[in-house]
Design a protein around this nucleic acid. Structure first.
Lengths: 358, 358
DNA sequence: CTGTTAGCGCTTTCAC
DNA sequence: GTGAAAGCGCTAACAG
């Protein structure tokens, strides 16, 4: 099942078979027909490994994520793969699990397979990856982090915009004491989201007292712990913005355990819009990160890094990904306890209908 | 950055470099040291593509799933990749999305990359995959389906065992009218699960009237539709077994909308134990399918197909994967409305504590 | 133990 | 337009 075999059976040279297979138009119609016939009969399929050796292009791309099991990623992986397929490329996915050893191994494996470039979506703990990728001078696209080097684009997510919608939505519902559950302190992504929140609060002159800012870890358990903290406060928040949906789910779960009704007594907003967000009770109002678009953008950016526009001094490309709020049922009018009204006020029904604003 | 370059710098032949890189022990210590030094200085990394061409082994495996976004798969993908890494192999993942066109393309792509074998986990709609894989005589391991051909192992999931636990658990809670929400009618997996349910019911002489058997589609929406049907019944079931957690989530969601309390008025059991199952309200009692083990098993089975024991006539290997029930909070004592007791009885609290039986 | 050499399956000049 | 031949980076005989 090699080129040679097909050549023999079609009574042509290997060069001709190669040309036919690759659709080079300067081949005699008859010869081409004979070749295709032989290919069909023998069930021949080109060996891309061999092709890669001679062409020097592997048509292979790496996709580095932190954890497949994080519901944020599956759609991204799917869409990245789809984008790659469109370009006739294959994807090598790997999870770092935040483990430096694994990261190093991942990069080494990808380098040995001669990937042409890699997209890195680890959301905080990518130092080792960046280091190794740079050492090998592999084209890369990072999400969120901005590594100053050549052949490295960056896709940034517009945390500000979505967060602003979230904060203003809460303000419109008369919330003033708004708590924030952030991600791990060391993560740049978490920092960026938190800054966005603070700025959006300042924009409309709302307080961000430090007792209302807690650092979580983007897990359900972290969200639960965060709400436990808030619940102990003298003056509790009436609404909570979370840096991830997982944290928001945890917040809601703990609220349920403590008998705090969401959204009547506590409004909750998440971030990411993972599928789970639509299934919890009540369905979670959250900030959409367009994951399919993110993946497509990352792949295209990679392609662009690889084929830089001629006649221009290289400059790492930068992309900004839009975000938006989707209204579901986890937010409602503030219960206004602080204004001296009784808890009965908390029965005020949700003011909106759960339509999607996208 | 080729072997030759390293050879020049270390003043040895390419053969020696190759031997050193591959850890062949019959090499002079000094030469080896020189080679490793050059390798380190130049940052050399072997080109596996070239290796594959000469060795004929790609160390690449395919993993065919139906949809990355189905929460059943991420852990499997992760664990399969981990198993492959242990063997120094790489994984090419692809989603069929139940689309024959995509399946054919997937197989073709994998064949061109010269995968050594593939694991197929599409749970019903694998005909095209099987056909294409067989045509190329690629070693394969299937989950659930049993394609009679050589070089094809099969991993079966013990649906019976987990389902029996589920049914008997419900029976112990005095449930007698138990509904079943199955998967798509055309799916072999769905059929196997359904048969398991029916047999388990018969084992303990419980009725499976046809009005209590509905075919869903393993989605939340399907589960919702199923409960709508059940709710219309004169004599409603007091408990429902679902063929997947997603369906169970839908059942619970619709129950919530209809004001039926789970578990007080309706007990629900799922299947798969996807992460979501632990996060819904109430947490879902479900049948565990050990996904990490499934992935490891599938990979090892693949390896075994590739290195068949000598001196034995080939026989496709068959593996059985255990299942078990995990008790959470979606089941409770039957409300016994049929016995003439009032609805107040439905407030009887859940009889167990949510411990995990694994 | 080491180097020379052939060749894996393919693409790509370069003559014809 | 087509084929002969060189060569991609590597491994594996084989000779020494």
């Amino acid at each position: 099942m090699s080129l040679r075999e097909i050549a023999n059976h079609a009574k042509v040279s290997t060069a001709t078979v190669s040309r036919v297979i690759n659709g080079i138009p300067t081949v005699n119609r008859n010869l081409a027909k004979r070749v295709w016939k032989a290919v069909g009969e023998r069930g021949y399929s080109a060996n891309s490994q061999a092709r890669c050796v001679v062409s020097g292009k592997s048509r292979l791309f790496g996709l580095v994520i932190s954890d497949m099991r994080d519901p944020f990623f599956p759609e991204i992986v799917q869409s990245f793969e789809a984008a790659a397929i469109e370009f006739g490329c294959e994807t090598l996915v790997t999870s770092t699990l935040h483990d430096p050893k694994r990261m190093e191994l991942s990069v080494r494996r990808m380098v040995e397979r001669r990937i042409e470039g890699a997209a890195v979506l680890t959301f905080g703990s990518e130092e080792v990856i960046i280091e190794n990728l740079r050492a090998q001078e592999i084209a890369a696209v990072f999400v969120d982090v901005e590594p100053r080097r050549s052949k490295a684009g960056v896709v940034q997510i517009d945390y500000k915009r979505g967060t602003r919608h979230a904060v203003q939505h809460l303000a419109a519902l008369r919330h003033e004491r708004i708590g924030y559950v952030g991600g791990p302190a060391h993560s740049k992504t978490a920092l960026a989201k938190r800054s966005a929140f603070e700025e959006c609060m300042h924009e409309i002159s709302l307080d961000v007292s430090s007792e209302l800012m807690v650092a979580g870890d983007d897990t359900v358990e972290g969200g639960m712990r965060a709400l436990t903290l808030f619940a102990r406060l003298q003056d509790r928040p009436t609404a909570i913005v979370c840096s991830t949906d997982m944290a928001a789910v945890g917040v809601m779960k703990r609220a349920h355990e403590l008998g705090m009704a969401v959204p009547q007594e506590l409004s909750v907003i998440g971030f990411d819009d993972i599928p789970l967000a639509g299934f919890v009770t009540p369905p979670l109002t959250t900030v959409i990160v367009p994951k399919a678009e993110l993946a497509r953008l990352a792949f295209r950016a990679l392609i662009c890094e690889l084929n830089p526009a001629r006649d221009e001094i290289y400059q790492p490309q930068k992309y900004l990904l839009n975000t938006d709020l989707v209204l579901r049922r986890s937010t409602a009018l503030a219960c206004l306890r602080r204004s001296g009204l009784t808890d009965l006020q908390s029965l005020v029904s949700n003011s909106h209908t759960g339509e999607t604003v996208t």
